[in-house]
């Protein structure tokens, strides 16, 4: 039997197996879950914003704030300590509705961006093909580094129920990429 025949025959396996193997993705498209997720996200934003925006602004007013950060990051997932020696951060929402934090370098050019997604709500990230892929285990967290020609372009990891994707505008060496990834909350 040719393997191609088997792959083709697998096309019509029972729907239950297809859905079972892809439950997260199917949950994403469930309207009821989406509504619940949006409600939870709104509530979280409100609570986190209430807790953090005021103290941040107050702190900035009192001390002048960290010079290296132009935008408040209160509702964002990267703490301001990550931005030491960086010009600024920008926040946006990508085409899939995922919040993105982009960190700019000293020349105010985008250096890298971070996406953080609840693993129970959204699917894993789809990335373009890479010819370099390694995994590193640090403090019990498995970091997957992907890129080309031994240089890191993406780092993926899961922590505390969230999937993270760190994307570099260019590429960098693996150790630098891991150092940045480890610093992201």
């Amino acid at each position: 039997m040719k393997p191609e025949t088997l792959l083709k025959a697998m096309n019509d396996i029972d729907d239950e197996f297809i859905i079972e193997a892809d439950k997260q993705r199917f949950r994403l498209f469930s309207p009821s879950n989406l509504k619940m997720a949006l409600s939870v996200a709104t509530a979280c934003l409100f609570i986190v914003g209430s807790i953090m925006i005021l103290p941040f602004n107050t702190r900035k007013g009192a001390t002048g704030g960290p010079d290296t950060v132009n935008a408040p990051v209160s509702s964002y997932f990267i703490e301001d300590r990550v931005f030491d020696n960086k010009k600024s951060v920008e926040k946006s929402v990508d085409k899939d509705g995922i919040a993105v934090t982009t960190v700019m370098n000293e020349e105010n050019q985008p250096e890298y961006s971070v996406r953080k997604v609840d693993e129970n709500i959204l699917e894993v990230f789809n990335l373009p093909s890479c010819n370099f892929e390694i995994s590193r285990e640090i403090n019990g967290i498995s970091y997957k580094i992907m890129g080309n020609d031994s240089m890191a372009e993406y780092v993926l990891w899961n922590r505390n129920g969230y999937n993270y994707l760190l994307s570099f505008v260019g590429s960098c060496d693996v150790d630098t990429a891991l150092d940045i990834a480890k610093g992201i909350e």
Partner: peptide, 26 residues
Amino acid sequence: ELSEVLGHASDVQQHLDVTTLTESIN
């Protein structure tokens, strides 16, 4: 990976039995 266990034998019979094969896989 699949060819390691299935080989590349003629699949004339399997062409006729794809539905049966799917049922077996299920």
